[in-house]
């Protein structure tokens, strides 16, 4: 069994009076793909956004319980959020490249973190684009605008951008929901490859996608973590009737 990377214990989250996550206990393991599934409003994206404190930007949001990223208490007041987000990268639902060149998109964060050496930057850009399986398609036009890429390419660019600062964990919030089926399969293939080096947590509305790419699956329902197990178990012999009902399209 891979070592624990992120451990959530009795994690509660409130948006004002609304109790959005109810005492979530979950262990996310190193170099595994963990999929979060459940109907809209179940708390899966909220949970994902806790992992690099993206919920901080919502003023009425309050969190209690513990969320440990290895030895770092994610929600401790002393935790440096910028340093945390350097280790826990994120890819969003719709591809959102900066209105800059392909090169500058990937080089942006390393530069921001103080890297000035041009050769080093070039190395990072190439390595990141290769890891994101985009290099061959863009190597001859690195200085062209990123917005000229197709949707699927833009999303892989966003993945390359996230990889450029060499995070340990990659959070993905429905990364293929805006993409065509072939681009989706490319991203899925990429996720399987990235797993060798990164811990990946993905929110997806596509259950077949969760089944195809993840090692573990967590099923959320109205703020509860109903069931968390090996993906194979969740999709073949789930233990909770609510999980069974959800994945087979029956709602009680």
């Amino acid at each position: 069994m891979n070592k624990a990377k992120i451990v959530s214990e009795d994690l509660n989250l409130y948006y004002g009076d609304f109790h959005a996550l109810h005492g979530i206990d979950m262990t996310i393991r190193d170099r595994e793909v963990t999929a979060l599934i459940g109907p809209s409003g179940c708390g899966k994206s909220t949970f994902l956004r806790c992992l690099n404190r993206m919920n901080d930007i919502i003023p009425i949001c309050r969190v209690d319980g513990t969320l440990m990223f290895e030895d770092t208490d994610i929600y401790a007041p002393t935790t440096d959020v910028v340093a945390l987000r350097k280790r826990v990268g994120m890819v969003f639902q719709a591809p959102n490249p900066f209105p800059k060149s392909i090169f500058d998109n990937v080089a942006y964060a390393p530069k921001l973190h103080g890297l000035k050496d041009k050769t080093k930057l070039e190395e990072i850009v190439e390595k990141s684009l290769k890891q994101a399986a985009l290099w061959d398609e863009v190597k001859d036009r690195l200085h062209k605008p990123a917005l000229g890429l197709s949707g699927g390419q833009q999303q892989r660019l966003c993945i390359a951008r996230a990889l450029a600062i060499q995070p340990e964990v990659l959070l993905m919030d429905e990364p293929t929901s805006a993409l065509d089926p072939i681009s989706t399969l490319k991203i899925e293939e990429l996720i399987r490859e990235l797993k060798a080096q990164y811990t990946i947590v993905i929110v997806t509305h596509n259950m077949q996608q969760a089944a195809r790419i993840s090692d573990k699956t967590a099923f959320f329902l109205v703020g509860d973590l109903v069931e968390f197990d090996h993906t194979e178990v969740i999709f073949t012999t789930p233990k909770d009737q609510r999980t069974e009902d959800y994945i087979t399209g029956r709602f009680g």
């Binding site: 259950m207 077949q208 089944a211 999709f235 073949t236 012999t237 789930p238 999980t243 069974e244 994945i247 087979t248």
Partner: peptide
């Protein structure tokens, strides 16, 4: 139909 769980069984 990509059946799951008991549906697949």
């Amino acid at each position: 139909q990509q059946p799951m769980a008991k549906d697949l069984r």
